[in-house]
């Protein structure tokens, strides 16, 4: 494991925990897209089915289990426990426009035409666009709580660091995975606009609000 992978994984974990903690402490999921969180739960579930077929390391297994559990806990808090605070009217992104094309692409472009491989590929493609409902919600309401922007920053940082991880692995291990790299690039690009706002506004102590 290289330094980029290490920091990326913990940045990802930080993002997940920041979100859970925010919802739990404020007893509210206002401003959070439940749809993005459901997509992330689907991403983890379909990707980590390999927990049942192969053991890689204690670190690998623990992180996968933590990611899956936290994502389900988040969905539970949004749709069950704090349902009254869920802002469904603003969470109006049509997820079928993501899931259906991504499913089709996973069937067409994959490493091996086998169920687990197709589900793994599906999860990679889906993860690259899963944040769109959340970004759409922010663009619709024109603002985001600062803690929500920290969550998004950690999530974007995780993906950006994975790009460095892949460059590292290509040079030092001769390993690269085209599906993950292309999807990772797409995912990172989606965060660029947000990164700009985060650096120019949030880090200067201002609230993230978009011009009307």
């Amino acid at each position: 494991m290289n330094i980029f992978r290490g920091i990326a994984d913990f940045s990802h974990l930080a993002a997940i925990i920041i979100l859970l903690h925010k919802i739990w402490k404020s007893r509210s999921c206002a401003g959070i897209s439940g749809k993005s969180q459901i997509l992330f739960a689907i991403v983890f579930t379909t990707r980590y089915l390999d927990l049942l077929t192969s053991f890689i390391s204690l670190y690998n297994t623990s992180m996968k289990v933590i990611y899956i559990s936290c994502s389900y806990a988040t969905v539970y808090l949004i749709y069950m426990k704090f349902r009254a605070t869920y802002d469904g009217n603003h969470d109006s992104f049509r997820v079928e426009f993501l899931v259906v094309p991504v499913g089709g692409l996973a069937v067409l472009i994959n490493h091996d035409f086998a169920l687990l491989e197709i589900l793994w590929t599906f999860s990679i493609y889906l993860e690259s666009v899963a944040i769109l409902p959340q970004l759409f919600m922010i663009s619709k309401t024109g603002e985001a709580e600062t803690i929500t922007t920290h969550y998004l920053f950690c999530l974007g940082l995780y993906r950006a660091l994975y790009l460095f991880n892949w460059i590292w692995r290509f040079y030092f291990e001769g390993f690269f995975d085209m599906i993950a790299i292309v999807a990772g690039l797409v995912q990172t690009v989606l965060y660029c606009d947000f990164f700009y706002l985060y650096v120019t506004k949030v880090l200067k102590g201002k609230k993230l609000s978009l011009p009307a």
Partner: peptide, 10 residues
Amino acid sequence: SQELLRHDEL
């Protein structure tokens, strides 16, 4: 194998 290398990532 390549497959295991991929599944090592999270």
